[in-house]
Write a protein that binds this DNA or RNA. Structure first.
Length: 582
RNA sequence: GCCCUCGUAGUUCAAUGGAUAGAACAAAGCUCUUCUAAGGCUUUGAUGUUGGUUCGAUUCCAACCGAGGGCACCA
């Protein structure tokens, strides 16, 4: 890579200044924001000026002089600029060759082997059966899926896992609600068929949860009933309860699968809290003997603050002798490793549990240290509504399904005047609406909250998913025309063609994939792709690509083709598809 | 109360300690007999406050102000 070569040369030039190797301070070589400052810029003179007791400008001048003594072929010009930056201008032929590489590598362009063979298991989405799949799960899925793809792009062997809470107090609340609604007839009146007259409409189950949850808070008697119910569900000791439970779980999971299909996620493993509870409990009980956990008020707890003042106490086994979420997580990591012995595991969750996760991780280090050191937790921001918080307790949720259909309707509305057959329109609308949603989530830093405004966030203009898809569609259209007219991509023209921003951006793609992977940050990709699409759109507006009478046309066709390749590869890493037309 | 995260144009987001803080939306103006105008080109507009570290701070540190989240049997 050119970057490494230049860094090497800079080091040599610095050594030539009489600085011993171990004294060379850390310096950078990066793409300046402003393209007129060259293709790469280094701050080496700025960081050296102090130890040399010379002005940065003076140091830079000398380094440049040294660099010019054995200049690389691909470097056209080296300049000192501003307060002492050294700017490198690369030769046009370097970029032309780079575009050639894009065309040659095709779908593989941009991928690397940084994580070659690394067995990685990522758990994400993690909706709870018996509860709504709401827009928070949507967000989690979009981020998790993008991370998986980015890791794969960096060479990892990724398995997708979905960890679902099929036991726990929320389930008891739902089942309690079901009994209540069956008892007073609310369920029967509205829904027929299904088990015990209780419908297979997931919305009714959501209402049952809301009923159970609100009553739990208000009514002591109901609270006790729900708590007892919870224990029975764990123990599977009551046939009637089991029947409702199994039926409800099945309906939930079927419902989730529909959404995964629309979103383009396919899980390799499903883990359930009911499977890992006992395993987790055993680990905690062993830890209790070892003094890692302690008894307190009938519960088994972990005093995190004993190890680190930033941690706090958490209950791992409650006073009813049931494992809490904490203990289940200990079981989960063991179970994950049983099914797929991993080198790394990544848990993607909302950032509201960041502090909790730190405590958990500490307990993990004490109980299953070999596995704990392979854990990475990524807490993403929350999807917030401008109107305030969402709550599934009161039924104030926006379900994933609702949001998806809402966006899709908007897209269809926008496509009204398009000359596309109805059937295709529907498919295109799905691709575009999912693209819009995914992009709006992935374009910003993973850890930050997203203020989700229905009107604005679903924009299809400017900095949006459809903008990127649209650029691809236009590129496709050009390539079709070029083929019809018999113009083939060609980069080996006699006279060097004009180089604009487009080729320079194209060849940066592999660096972006690498960075997005290292920092678990899809938004670097999203930002880059937008910049790239913008460069292409300008190119598109300024020049006619396909023109039989223009000798440069084959070069423009090559650029268009390379653009489409990078764009598709990049969008693919984000989990965004590109329609044929839109 | 304690802990964590975050404060950037009117709004939604970028910026690896670097050069003139980038986009998009909104507003104003131009631009389709041309490969899709979901496009392109102009213009206006921002680092919460006060200090500190540094050659250089949106970025690091401190205090304050403001927002969100978390702190024992929910997940």
């Amino acid at each position: 890579m050119i970057k490494e070569e230049i860094i090497d040369l800079i080091k040599k030039a610095v050594l030539a200044q009489g600085i011993p190797e171990q004294d060379i301070p850390a310096f950078t070589l990066e793409h300046p924001d402003e393209m007129s400052y060259g293709d790469l810029a280094s701050n080496v003179a700025l960081v050296l000026s102090k130890s040399l007791k010379k002005s940065p400008v003076e140091v830079a001048k000398q380094v440049v002089e040294n660099l010019n003594k054995n200049k690389l072929d691909a470097v056209e010009k080296i300049e000192m600029a501003g307060p002492g930056f050294i700017n490198f201008y690369l030769a046009d032929k370097y970029f032309v060759a780079g575009v050639g590489e894009v065309l040659k590598a095709g779908e593989k362009y941009g991928t690397n082997n940084n994580l070659k063979g690394q067995k990685t298991i990522v758990d994400y989405t993690d909706p709870n059966p018996f509860k709504d799949f709401h827009i928070g799960h949507l967000m989690n899925n979009v981020i998790g899926e993008a991370l998986c793809r980015i890791m794969e792009g960096n060479g990892a062997n990724v398995k997708r896992a979905n960890y679902q809470g099929d036991v726990g107090i929320h389930v008891a609340k739902t089942i309690w609600g079901v009994f209540k609604m069956l008892g007073d007839g609310t369920a029967k009146k509205e829904f027929f068929g299904g088990l015990f007259g209780f419908g297979n409409n997931p919305k009714v189950w959501g209402r049952a949860y809301a009923l159970g949850a609100t009553t739990f808070d208000q009514d002591e008697q109901a609270k006790k009933e729900i708590t007892d119910l919870n224990k029975k569900i764990y123990e599977r000791s009551d046939r009637k309860i089991n029947k409702i439970y199994d039926f409800g779980k099945k309906i939930s999971l079927q419902e989730f699968e529909k959404i995964y299909k629309i979103l383009g996620t396919k899980f390799d493993y499903y883990f359930f809290e009911s499977e890992v509870g006992n395993l987790g409990k055993e680990i905690v009980l062993k830890g209790l003997k070892d003094g890692i956990f302690e008894k307190s008020d009938g519960a088994t707890v972990f005093h995190g603050e004993k190890y680190d003042p930033l941690l706090h106490t958490r209950v791992f086994i409650n006073s009813q002798n049931l494992p809490t979420y904490e203990a289940k997580e200990l079981g989960l990591i063991v179970e994950k490793n049983n099914r797929f012995p991993f080198d790394k595991t990544i848990s993607v969750t909302g950032n509201e549990i960041n502090d909790y996760y730190k405590v958990l991780l500490r307990a993990m280090f004490l109980t299953v240290p070999d596995l704990a050191k392979k854990v990475t937790h990524i807490g993403h921001g929350m999807l917030r509504l401008p109107t305030g918080k969402m709550s599934s307790r009161t039924g104030q949720v926006i379900t994933g399904e609702f949001l998806l259909s809402e966006i899709k309707n908007n897209v269809l509305e926008k496509m009204k005047d398009r000359q596309i057959p109805e059937k295709e329109k529907y498919l295109v609308a799905e691709i575009v609406s999912i693209g819009a949603l995914k992009y709006s989530i992935l374009k910003q830093e993973t850890g930050k909250d997203i203020i989700f405004d229905f009107d604005k966030s679903l924009s299809f203009e400017g900095d949006s998913g459809p903008y990127l898809q649209y650029a691809c569609v236009r590129a496709k259209s050009i390539l079709e025309k070029a083929e019809k007219e018999g113009i083939k991509a060609n980069l080996n023209l006699e006279n060097t063609p004009v180089i604009g921003e487009l080729p320079k951006l194209l060849v940066r793609f592999p660096e972006v994939v690498e960075r997005a992977g290292k920092e678990y940050s899809p938004h670097y990709l999203a930002t880059y792709l937008t910049e790239l699409a913008s460069a292409f759109s300008t190119f598109y507006a300024e020049q006619v690509v396909v023109d039989k009478n223009d000798p440069v046309s084959p070069y423009r066709v090559a650029l268009t083709s390379a653009f489409l390749t990078v764009m598709k590869n990049g969008l693919n890493l984000l989990g965004i598809k590109v329609p044929e037309r839109m």
